[in-house]
Amino acid sequence: MTTFAQKQSPAVRTTPDGARRSPAQKPRRRPKERLAKVVIIVLLLTGAAFAAFPIIWMASSSFKPNTEIFAYPPQLITSNFSFDAYITILTDPAKVRFFINSYVVSLAVTALTLLVAILASYAFSRYEFKGKRPINMIIVSIQAVPPITLLIPFFGLMVVLGLYNTYQGLILTYLVFTLPYAIIMMTGYFNTLPKELDEAARMDGAGPLTVLWRILVPISIPGIVSVGVYTFMIAWNEYLFALTLTRTEDMRTVPIGIQLLMGQNSYEWNEMMAMSILGCIPVLILFLFFQRYFIGGMTAGAVKS
């Protein structure tokens, strides 16, 4: 903490000879610094209002009776505070089904993505082979393929394969979007682990699979968690393919379920907000528990260490 302050704070560092000659300067600097601090705090609070107000409003609306949603003047905390909207959703089997579907699909996608990506990343990180660069390049560029371009052939393909309106169809589809990212990130993580580790194990006669599962995977848990969390989030949030590749209400996922609530004649705003809150809880929990890994995942693409 002190070294940090010494490096950063101009007030401490202005005397190069290290003597405490600063009293003359300090009074001149302090007010300026205090002003800067006030400005920064004000800006931080403004930004926080911008970021958080809509979310607070969502939470607040989910506790209101639907008749009070557009009450004038709007109230942040209603006197008729109730959990009715949540109860309505959680006691309706059709709506609970949306959540079950989302969990099944997202967890399966996460498990499959991790399995396939770990194998591929091991090859990228620990082997030199013909075609490594082109294959790597293809994987990087695949991330850019627009979902809408794949949508029409996927629709045709899933109907032909009999996977239309099934979990398997959605799970396979999501793999296309999660794998490239997962491989790139996992390879980056493996690259940070010293190769001496697996070489030592190989000296003892271990095969490549043993080295991977017994040596690399156990020490890569942080990397695997970030990839897993990110993958889960992509699958949990996906909308376009969930909309197009499922048809019956019992196969719909949460994002589509929210839209279905909106489709009915009268808008049950409080229920929509309650469902939104329930729908973001898994991601919020993942975020709070794995914040560091999460941020690692977000920055992996653009920042290189």
Partner: peptide, 30 residues
């Protein structure tokens, strides 16, 4: 603390964001 608050919008799926802003931007909205 502020960092967590600033990341919040990113944690919400687009479907939720769309519904939320339809509520906020309603002619009678907040």
């Amino acid at each position: 603390l502020f960092r967590v608050v600033y990341i919040l919008p990113w944690l919400f799926t687009v479907a939720i964001i769309a519904v939320l802003w339809r509520l906020m931007l309603n002619p009678n909205g907040v």
